[in-house]
Design a protein around this nucleic acid. Structure first.
Lengths: 204, 204
DNA sequence: GTCTATATTTGGATAGAC
DNA sequence: GTCTATCCAAATATAGAC
């Protein structure tokens, strides 16, 4: 009888890659570091993913498919009673839940923030082509709620808001809670403050 | 008679490194790419800076010494008539001016944003040890202007504000202006919107 | 201060046995 | 699907001539 690993080789690679990409960046984390952390053989990456670039895309796909679905689901649910706060909540809460529920989910928000900070053409194209519709739908929802703003003014504020959200949510994966506070409480507070702050900025 | 380069080898290396670090990250940009772009010999980096890590630190030092000085100068100037808007202006305008005046200054704001996105221990320590006092002084100014907020509430909002500012100012170095608009006008508008948005979020 | 040449390490990727 | 062994390109860094 031999060990039955809890996660498949493929899943272990994705998990280790996620963690190392968050910590050292896509260029900074080598495949050797990834396979070593995942406790799999170096050759396994190329067998399962073909190349490092494909591995990077898979790291995103694994989380973003579901995250996008849940964000749009929630946006649809609150359509009748949409406020700036409820729309922001529809965007933020699924990310918060991901960061709390899933092993590695919290780390992923940092990977996502890196992808935005990197102006890597290839990566941005991949994300925009596959998940750009989510941001578009949310932008439309905000436009409806802020009819007093002209198109240009709205553009500016959403740009700033997206930056603030991306940056703040990256910290879902950083431990900086005060003693006595649980991870969950800390992040829920963060989400609450983030909604409050951003809504005020948008309707300023 | 041979060419007299307008900038010294050292300066050319710093300029090329700044640009490539902004575009590809610290790990993503190799010294070969840097020296090639700077049109200097590969060995020149080690001669002038000793190592890649030292080069990275010098890229920051070259801009941050003056930027920090100007930010604090401006903060002192408006001390008597401090408002959220004027304090935010004291933080943002020197960065805006850097991005407009200096060759490569606009690119540097992207490098700075990368440094924040990277949770690189060594780099964060260097920045915090050498320039942390600037953020501390600004935090104190904000605390004075927001006496109704308890310490924790203030902490949250400043955290979110710093993220929004960092992220948005990185785009000082990205060309996305509309046709007919000058670079300067575009960035001045960005700064104006950023102050408006962030002030509203802080006093929400 | 700047060059050529090179030492040394590390990177991504693959071939072929099992 | 997973391993060992290896190829080859690219990385940082240095030695030594000029």
């Amino acid at each position: 009888m031999h060990d039955t690993p809890q996660f498949s080789t493929r899943q272990r690679i994705l998990g280790a890659a996620e963690e190392l990409f968050a910590e050292r960046g896509f260029a900074g984390a080598s495949l050797r570091q990834v396979t070593s952390a995942a406790k799999v053989n170096l050759a396994a990456v190329n067998y399962h993913f073909g190349s490092k670039d494909n591995l990077i895309e898979e790291v995103f796909r694994r989380r973003l498919d579901e995250l996008s679905r849940r964000r749009l689901e929630r946006l649809a649910e609150i359509a009748d009673e949409a406020t700036l706060e409820s729309v922001l909540d529809a965007f933020i809460t699924p990310a918060l839940e991901l960061s709390l529920d899933r092993k590695g989910g919290s780390v992923f928000m940092r990977v996502l923030a890196r992808a935005f900070a990197e102006h890597n053409t290839h990566l941005r194209k991949f994300l925009s082509e596959n998940y750009g519709y989510v941001l578009k739908d949310f932008a439309a929802a905000f436009a409806n709620l802020l009819p007093q703003l002209d198109k240009e003014e709205l553009y500016w504020r959403l740009d700033i808001a997206v930056g603030a959200l991306t940056y703040a949510m990256a910290d879902f994966g950083v431990i900086q809670r005060r003693p006595g506070e649980t991870e969950r409480t800390h992040r829920e507070q963060m989400a609450r403050h983030l909604i409050h702050f951003t809504a005020a900025g948008l309707r300023a």
